[in-house]
């Protein structure tokens, strides 16, 4: 087993185990920390795949900003754990069964039908240099300029929407 396969399987174990930890942890706080671990493992995948800019954006935007927002809301609401309530009894086995069906279907398709045998390029010097970052910037600001600007409008709309949603009405009692 060579080095890149070893790295792949170690990262795969970290990513899948932290995702399972996210699913089974009782406290939303621990779930958020498991998700940060998962984002970190996937960011290393991005580095291996020759996308250093996306990897750094993953760390700063996802693991940094978004998860801080999550933790802030969790602590603001005090919603670390829900009180044990009347859960729908048929929901959990049905969901697990359907997910297993989905995984089996995807695996079947991947193994039997697609026959994807393309080997990814080994991380060489030519993908991890500044030149690829320059290419990325050129593509972003020339071919994809309109979607980029639409993105800025989307972020503005989200910002205004959040402010309007979270604003207290006049005369509303504080909770």
């Amino acid at each position: 087993m060579n080095l890149s396969l070893l790295l792949f399987f170690v990262l795969a174990a970290v990513a899948v185990l932290s995702a399972i930890g996210l699913l089974v942890s009782r406290s939303a706080l621990y779930a958020a920390l498991f998700l940060v671990l998962n984002f970190g493992a996937v960011a290393v995948y991005y580095l291996v795949l020759g996308a250093p800019f996306i990897a750094m954006a993953q760390i700063t935007v996802y693991a940094g900003a978004i998860m801080v927002l999550f933790l802030f809301v969790i602590m603001l609401l005090g919603a670390e754990t829900l009180p044990p309530g009347r859960a729908l009894p048929w929901q959990r086995p049905l969901a697990i069964g359907l997910s297993i069906v989905l995984i089996a279907e995807a695996a079947l398709l991947l193994v039997q039908r697609l026959k994807i045998t393309a080997i990814l390029a080994a991380p060489g010097v030519e993908v991890n240099t500044v030149a690829s970052l320059v290419d990325l910037g050129k593509a972003l600001f020339q071919s994809y300029l309109l979607p980029f600007e639409v993105t800025s409008v989307l972020l503005l709309v989200a910002m205004v929407g959040v402010i309007v949603l979270a604003k207290r009405e006049k005369g509303e009692v504080g909770s």
Partner: peptide, 28 residues
Amino acid sequence: MTNAVPLSYYLGISGLLFALGILGVLIR
């Protein structure tokens, strides 16, 4: 690093993460 990881391995881990996310949406 001479021979790198096949594409299907990455697609497999990607699909696994996606399915675990669906499972989380359904059971939590």
